[in-house]
């Protein structure tokens, strides 16, 4: 499988390293001659093309016509947009990935026909935010680019949800308890299943209802728990 990466910096270096080790054939496009020299010294297996990756001829030099995927990771969103659009519209590359530096551009890229968008700022900030605000969340996995998320929450004795049945929780639409883990047993809950303390709930939810889920379980909007010495400030969401 051939993959073209457009961009620079450590991101490209490590991306190339990991893809080469998995046996992919990599071509990197970058505008900076010094960086290109460095890349070709470091990655003997990769092809390096010097030039502006948003120009059709440079993409052609890099073999865009017979490549399986193009990844645009420049720090400039308009460049990434044009690279992705050229690759998919003009050259019919089957898989095109674009990095978005400004998270607001996710919807812009989607409206303009770029389907697979990676917003590093968004992913990192949402992960940090959720971890900082909530100690009780044990694991958190975004699914389908963050449209759905999966989290695991441990039930503390003082949570109002303890002792309630699933049907009494008042969960919002868009959230569901998939599994309860209790003393190493796995329970698939139904409406009458009651929550006990120390249960670990695995919840699937759409991001918009996260606060409501917290409220239904703990009685407060964020899970700031008594063991925190200082109250957690209401973060910007």
């Amino acid at each position: 499988m051939n993959i073209i990466i457009v961009g620079g910096g450590m991101k490209v270096h490590f991306l190339a390293k990991s893809l080469i080790s998995k046996g992919y054939s990599i071509t990197i496009i970058n505008e900076d001659p010094e960086y290109c020299k460095l890349l070709s010294r470091k990655h003997k297996a990769a092809n390096v093309v010097l030039g502006d990756g948003s120009r059709p001829q440079i993409l052609e030099d890099a073999g865009v016509e017979c490549t399986n995927a193009v990844i645009a990771v420049t720090p400039h969103d308009p460049d990434n947009l044009v690279i992705c659009q050229l690759a998919s519209k003009r050259y019919g590359v089957p898989k095109v990935f674009g990095i978005v530096n400004d998270p607001n551009n996710i919807s812009v890229f989607k409206s303009l026909g770029v389907e697979t968008i990676i917003s590093t700022a968004d992913i990192i900030s949402s992960l940090i935010e959720q971890r900082v605000l909530t100690d009780e969340i044990i694991d958190l996995v975004p699914i389908e680019g963050g449209k759905v998320a999966l989290m695991e929450i441990e039930m503390h004795p003082e949570y109002p949800a303890v002792g309630k049945a699933m049907m009494e929780l008042g969960f919002p639409e868009g959230a569901i308890v998939g599994v309860i883990m209790r003393n190493g047993d796995v329970i698939i809950p139904f409406g009458k299943t009651r929550i006990q303390e120390k249960d670990r709930l695995v919840i699937l939810y759409v991001p918009g209802v996260q606060t409501e889920v917290f409220e239904a379980l703990s009685g407060s909007k964020n899970l700031n728990h008594k063991k925190n010495a200082q109250p957690v400030k209401e973060g910007k969401r």
Partner: peptide, 30 residues
């Protein structure tokens, strides 16, 4: 910057349905 102009022009046309959109491109192939 050509790519910036291309992006702005498409935002104006596709997202905001602006009746007349013009972009200056130094390199027309894009």
């Amino acid at each position: 910057d050509d790519n910036t102009n291309i992006m702005i022009a498409q935002i104006a046309k596709v997202i905001y349905n602006v009746p007349k959109v013009v972009a200056r491109l130094y390199e027309p192939s894009r």
